[in-house]
Amino acid sequence: MSFFNLISIGVGLSMDAFAVSVCKGLCQKKMNWKNSIIIGLFFGFFQAAMPIIGYFIGSHFYSLVSGISNWIAFILLTIIGVQMLRESKESVQEEVCCDISGIMEIDIRDMIMLSVATSIDALAVGFSFALLNINIIKAASVIGILTFLISSAGVYIGHKFGSRYKNTSEKLGGIILIIIGIKILLEGLL
């Protein structure tokens, strides 16, 4: 897999975390960079860890599905992408933790739950990485670093511009994952 494809997948996977980060940024009357970095670290860590877990699960099944691995990767990425597109249309308000003074609070349990929830799709991508025999350390590192940067920026964007980019980011992420899935399928067929 090319480095460009890996970056594209990382950006696509980070869009859920970005959307939540934007919502977290809505709480800040004054930009708090420390909170922005903490949120980025939570999301980046979990987005890097989940593909590794998925990879190890997938590597156990590789011999059973190696002949159709491109189809499985295509199906998984397409399902994840379509789900992200559906979520972007629902316009569900994210629950953010603000107190009445407009200061964002970081609750560790809340951040762990949000981080796991936004990185479940990365688990499935890690599974497909095992089927495609991709270097998981390189892939997880790229995904984690991109998610950290994009999520940290999301807090700032939420603070500055509000929630108008939340649905757009989820749509973009879904489209990117579907395109990568189609590309993987075509590469396997040709």
Rank of each mutant, 00 (worst) to 15 (best):
G10D: 00
L132F: 10
L172A: 11
S141C: 05
G44I: 01
D16G: 03
Q93K: 04
M104C: 07
F18P: 01
K160F: 00
D16I: 04
F74L: 10
R164F: 02
A122Q: 02
N5P: 01
K89E: 10
M84H: 00
I137C: 00
S163P: 11
V116E: 03
K89M: 07
I68P: 04
M50T: 08
N167Y: 13
K160G: 03
F42Y: 14
I72Q: 08
S115H: 06
N70E: 10
C97W: 01
G154Y: 06
I53F: 11
Q47G: 13
K30N: 09
A122V: 00
K183E: 02
I108K: 09
D16H: 08
I108M: 09
G144P: 11
G181L: 12
K171R: 15
W33E: 01
S141H: 11
Y55N: 06
G188C: 15
I7N: 12
K138I: 03
W71G: 04
M1N: 13
N32S: 00
S69K: 13
M104Y: 12
G54Q: 07
G173E: 07
F45D: 07
T78S: 11
L146A: 00
I136R: 08
K89N: 07
F42K: 01
Q47R: 12
S141A: 12
E187G: 15
Y62Q: 09
S2C: 09
S14C: 06
A140Y: 05
T118H: 05
N133Y: 06
F127H: 09
E105R: 15
G58A: 11
L123P: 08
I108T: 13
Q47H: 14
G81S: 09
S69M: 07
S101K: 05
L64W: 04
N5K: 06
G81D: 11
N35Y: 05
I178S: 01
N135Q: 10
S101T: 12
Y62I: 13
I103L: 13
I100Y: 04
D99Q: 14
I157E: 05
L64R: 09
I75G: 00
F3A: 14
S59Q: 13
V125R: 11
E105A: 05
A117H: 11
L149M: 15
I75K: 05
K138G: 08
G102Y: 07
S91W: 03
L185F: 15
I145L: 10
G10N: 01
I134F: 07
L186T: 04
N70K: 13
R86H: 11
G188K: 15
K29C: 12
S152W: 03
T168R: 10
V96S: 15
C97G: 07
F43L: 08
G174H: 10
A49M: 07
W33R: 12
L85N: 08
L41N: 01
G10K: 04
E187Y: 14
D99H: 08
S91K: 12
L185V: 11
S59D: 04
V20F: 12
A73V: 05
G158K: 14
V11R: 10
I38F: 02
I145Q: 02
F4K: 12
I108W: 14
I53N: 02
I179V: 13
A140T: 01
G25H: 00
S152N: 06
N133F: 13
E170Q: 15
I57Y: 11
F74S: 10
M104N: 01
C23T: 03
L6Q: 08
F45L: 14
G12M: 08
K171W: 06
S119N: 03
K89F: 10
D121T: 12
V125P: 08
